[in-house]
């Protein structure tokens, strides 16, 4: 399931909804990304997330489908917030449910690595030293590459 929203999410409520009273799930892995108060060399007072409505949902659904094709998942959830966020705020939640832990752990990492390089979100940071768009990190491309792309990415290599 995919959700793009401005508001916060409640981790325990989301896990309960994901379980949906099922008793055949043996493992649930969740990843929560939050806003840091520091960039590489500057203080951050707020972070605003922009996205491409329509394409975002399409990309996340494609990535989620790919995860379900690779691992025996019983359920999955991706929530990504947009709009203005403050240090400490939640940004993203990825949750995966499976009978055994390995599939859930790996699928959650896979979903985050692909989300980082393929989902059309952009971060704008503001702080006492000014404001600017966050640069993409080459390490994100490498993190995605470790899944040795069964599905070929149509993106060009990161150049920043």
């Amino acid at each position: 399931m995919i959700r793009i929203q401005e508001g916060d999410f409640d981790l325990s409520a989301e896990i309960e909804a994901l379980k949906d009273s099922r008793t055949d799930i043996g493992a649930i892995v969740t990843f929560t990304g939050t806003v840091r108060d520091r960039g590489s060399d500057k203080v951050i007072e707020s972070m605003t997330l922009e996205h491409y409505p329509g394409m975002t949902e399409k990309e996340l659904a494609r990535i989620e489908q790919e995860a379900h094709a690779r691992w025996p998942l019983q359920a999955s959830l991706i929530i990504h917030r947009v709009g203005k966020l403050l240090p400490g705020d939640n940004i993203v939640l990825v949750a995966t449910a499976s009978a055994h832990r390995h599939a859930a752990f790996e699928a959650a990492a896979f979903l985050m690595d692909y989300l980082k390089t393929d989902a059309p979100f952009w971060k704008f940071e503001e702080g006492p030293d000014g404001a600017g768009w966050v640069d993409a990190r080459e390490t994100d491309g490498a993190a995605k590459a470790r899944w040795s792309a069964k599905s070929s990415s149509k993106e060009e290599p990161a150049s920043t």
């Binding site: 990304g33 997330l49 996205h51 491409y52 394409m55 990504h80 940004i91 993203v92 985050m112 989300l115 980082k116 390089t117 393929d118 989902a119 059309p120 979100f121 952009w122 971060k123 768009w133 966050v134 640069d135 993409a136 990161a158 150049s159 920043t160």
Partner: peptide, 9 residues
């Protein structure tokens, strides 16, 4: 659409 490399997550 045209955009910079993505930076979500």
């Amino acid at each position: 659409a045209f955009f910079p490399p993505v930076t979500g997550g």
